[in-house]
Design a protein around this nucleic acid. Sequence first.
DNA 1: GCTCGTTTCAAACGGTCATTTTAATCGATT
DNA 2: AATCGATTAAAATGACCGTTTGAAACGAGC
Lengths: 214, 214
Amino acid sequence: MTGSEQTPTSTRERLIEAAVRLFGERGIGATSLRALTEAAGSNIAAVNYHFGSKEGLLRAVIDQTMHAVNEERRRRLDTLEASGQPLTLPDLVRAFVEPGVGLTEGHGHRAPEVARFIGRVMNEPDPRIRQIFAEQVDPIEGRYLTAFGRALPELDEDGARFAYAGVIGLLSSYQSGTLTTLHGQPPEKADDDTNRERLVAFITGGLLGLQSTP
Amino acid sequence: MTGSEQTPTSTRERLIEAAVRLFGERGIGATSLRALTEAAGSNIAAVNYHFGSKEGLLRAVIDQTMHAVNEERRRRLDTLEASGQPLTLPDLVRAFVEPGVGLTEGHGHRAPEVARFIGRVMNEPDPRIRQIFAEQVDPIEGRYLTAFGRALPELDEDGARFAYAGVIGLLSSYQSGTLTTLHGQPPEKADDDTNRERLVAFITGGLLGLQSTP
DNA sequence: GCTCGTTTCAAACGGTCATTTTAATCGATT
DNA sequence: AATCGATTAAAATGACCGTTTGAAACGAGC
């Protein structure tokens, strides 16, 4: 309905954009609404007007960013399962990892910011934030958990959970930039494609290694 | 000099103990000095008196906890290199991972708390905290980075950095409890030994996978 | 031109933060 | 017993937090 205007960007949109960027850069707790609304060229009260609270804003941002990822993950898993062939591990890893890393849908040049934001949310300590994230991801997560368990038949249920958590931990480290910017400067070298292949290779290898010595 | 008294615990020690526990539980930024000093049965001003500031306290806690880890990592790497035999990947992974996970030195029954604290610090967003941690870890980190590079000869320098960062990311996720408490309740099953073996297997497999498809 | 719902804004509120100040307490030394 | 440095404690300071308030600005419909 809203039409595809040329970056007129309503206040609401600008708030979400700024939240993605600043939450990803500084962390959620360390980003004040004052800094956020100033970056959005808006007023503090706008957050409460449009989202009710800081948590409401965070929820909206997570909803908006994770929706595309969830949809793409669901689509890919559907495709893999519909093919009839037995699920290969690299394909499954790609189906889960690439939507998070790429985020080709929706966000264009801001895709790296969005990826970093999600990475930050994924390994957030605060249990309330973890809860919000979990609610958004829950349904598709269950499907992948069982898919990983099926692709790694030698693992018991607990092992499969460990495997899945390992995938998430590695993915979140990668997306939050910790992996590619070892605590000095940024890496400069290695383009995104190379790093994505490295990530997939690392995760796939890890899962295989986990299965062979349970 | 201070002798080995029976848990009389000076204020300074109690502050550090409480910091390890609360920083690990809630995250550093989310832990107020008021809550911390109350948990330590002390006064807010004691932090400033003994450590100068909250950052001074954090620095002292990181120093104290990481010192044993660094020493153990250095010792293990020395032993491996002195053996003359070519460095095997699982041994190298164990030499790096187990001191962080186990923390057998010094801290007794509080070892899990310390491990979680370190895990939290390792994937902390705040660049200032990352800097403090980096200073403490830098020297031994360099040795392991080159050791990993040597144990994975097919990787170029950039690939080795990615590998090392992957090890750190996975280890930090594991130690902070994210890996073993998938966002529902704690896992209940699987004792620590099992999980440690899983972690080593996952990391080793990931490194091998990374090497075979660079 | 006026009204009315929507949206923005400046200002203020109550609360908590880290830090500082000032005074009290303790323990050893003389 | 008095003294003095080391330590603890209570209270104040100034800054910043998320949230709320009440009024101004805006735009569409009559």
